[in-house]
Amino acid sequence: MGMPNRKYADGEVVMGRWPGSVLYYEVQVTSYDDASHLYTVKYKDGTELALKESDIRLQS
């Protein structure tokens, strides 16, 4: 078993793309699913969504 190939840690605050949009919002990573390679993130309004790594970026 190798290390999970994840870029962002639980609790890390990053920018997540809103689905169907080009806009990124501040989100907190809450979990990562090794099987689906999706991150569960929480937006400031409390919305929780699963995002692909390509829809997440570090805060500038």
Rank of each mutant, 00 (worst) to 15 (best):
D33I: 03
K42D: 01
V13N: 08
V27R: 00
Y24D: 03
M15F: 12
V14H: 02
Y24C: 05
S36E: 10
A50W: 13
V22W: 12
Y43D: 10
S36D: 08
N5I: 14
Y32L: 01
D33S: 07
S31W: 07
P19H: 06
D10P: 08
Q28L: 12
D10C: 05
S21A: 07
S31Y: 09
G46T: 03
H37A: 14
V14A: 05
Y39T: 01
A50Q: 14
K52N: 10
W18Y: 10
V27L: 09
M15C: 15
L51Q: 02
L23D: 13
V14Y: 03
R17N: 04
K44H: 12
L49E: 04
M1E: 15
L23E: 14
P19C: 06
G11Y: 06
K52H: 13
G46E: 06
M15V: 05
K42Q: 13
G2A: 06
L38E: 11
E26T: 09
D10H: 04
G11Q: 05
D33A: 03
V41H: 01
E26G: 02
V27G: 10
Y43I: 07
L58T: 14
K52C: 12
G11A: 04
Y39E: 01
V27D: 00
V29S: 00
D34E: 14
L51S: 00
K42G: 03
D33F: 02
M1Y: 01
E26A: 08
T30K: 13
V22S: 13
G11K: 05
E53S: 05
S31I: 02
T30A: 09
Q59K: 15
Q28A: 07
K44S: 11
E26C: 11
E26Q: 11
G20D: 08
L58C: 12
R57T: 08
A50G: 07
E12C: 07
P4H: 11
K7H: 06
G20P: 09
G11W: 06
A35I: 11
G46W: 04
Y8K: 00
K42R: 12
L49A: 10
D34F: 07
K52V: 10
S21N: 06
D34G: 08
L23M: 15
D33N: 09
D33L: 03
K44W: 14
S54I: 10
S60L: 12
G16D: 00
D55E: 11
L51V: 07
T47E: 05
V41A: 05
L23Q: 12
P4Q: 12
R6F: 02
P19S: 04
P4G: 15
Y8Q: 01
V29F: 00
A9Q: 14
K42I: 13
G46K: 04
S36Y: 08
P19M: 05
V41P: 01
D34T: 09
A9P: 07
K44Q: 11
S60K: 13
P19V: 03
